[in-house]
């Protein structure tokens, strides 16, 4: 049972928290000179831009985007496959049951979290400086980010595997590699497929952003058309991107359902 004093203290704590939160909001609004009137006033301009410049999408030059779409899909496939291979190696080194040594696990976790916590846009910006504008820095940054991401989620999927089957194989004298092959991998397959498909989706979405730093694919068409003030073409590209993402989402969902 709570005493009256405890209840009052709880209330006080809550009120102090709320006051802090309100203060933080007010300070931030003041600090960045946030102007509501500008925000509201901008809406008609935005609408005007949207309906006169942006819409309707210019459908006549759809065929010209066939190349960039194919590029994006191909980048996605290459990046996903390579990231999945690298992620698999690191994932097995990082998961508790499969790591050869706890020290390796800790070192790998640190390294992977570094890789993963640098956003791929930052990777892309750095790699564009190194490799120059083109498709390679885009793919490389996806691979770097994706390897880290997949290593982490693969390792978690492995650690979530029920330990019963591994215990049984232990009890009958199976060795390290035999246990991985016969007890860990079969149970890891659903997680592996799910996360790898998700990585493919991510890489297609990412291509829109990667284009902005000149890293190739359909995204670079957004930047190109906007730089040329051909906004109705930009809207075409955006429509293509949305359709592409929806189709891939639908397909990966179907594959997941069938395989698991």
């Amino acid at each position: 049972m709570q005493t009256a004093a405890a209840v009052t203290q709880k209330k006080l704590k809550r009120n102090v928290s709320l006051a802090f939160f309100a203060a933080a909001v007010v300070f931030s609004l003041w600090y960045i000179n946030f102007s509501f009137s500008e925000f509201i006033g901008g809406i008609p301009i935005f609408m005007n831009f949207l309906f006169t410049d942006f819409l309707p999408p210019k459908a006549s030059d759809l065929p010209t985007y066939f190349g960039p779409v194919l590029d994006t899909l191909a980048y996605g496939v290459v990046a996903t496959v390579l990231a999945s291979v690298i992620g698999l190696v690191f994932g097995f080194l990082m998961a508790r049951q499969t790591t050869p040594h706890p020290v390796i696990r800790t070192v790998m976790r640190g390294f992977i979290s570094l890789l993963r916590n640098i956003p791929f846009l930052v990777w892309a910006s750095i790699l564009v400086v190194i490799f120059g504008v083109g498709s390679m820095p885009g793919i490389f940054s996806l691979i770097l980010f994706g390897s880290g991401f997949l290593a982490r989620v693969y390792a978690e999927a492995i650690e979530e595997i029920d330990s019963h089957a591994t215990e049984a194989l232990d009890a009958m004298g199976a060795g390290y590699l035999q246990k991985i092959k016969h007890a860990i991998i079969p149970q890891f397959v659903p997680g592996y497929i799910s996360w790898t498909l998700f990585m493919f989706e991510l890489s297609i979405r990412a291509s829109a952003i990667l284009g902005l730093v000149g890293a190739g694919g359909i995204g670079s068409q957004i930047k190109l058309t906007m730089d040329l003030f051909q906004y109705n073409r930009t809207s075409t590209v955006i429509c293509i991107l949305i359709v592409m993402i929806l189709v891939i989402e639908f397909m990966t969902k179907r594959i997941r359902e069938r395989l698991i």
Binding site: H164, A165, E167, A168, L169, M172, G173, A174, G175, L177, Q178, K181, H182, A183, P186, Q187, V189, P190
Partner: peptide, 27 residues
């Protein structure tokens, strides 16, 4: 029971042989 749920019954029984096989043959 501690079986590997996603494998066939036959494969689960064959797991009993792993301890007496070389690592290569087992894998």
């Amino acid at each position: 029971y501690n079986l590997v749920d996603r494998l066939s019954v036959l494969e689960n029984v064959l797991h009993g042989r792993l301890g007496q096989m070389s690592a290569f043959n087992g894998v």
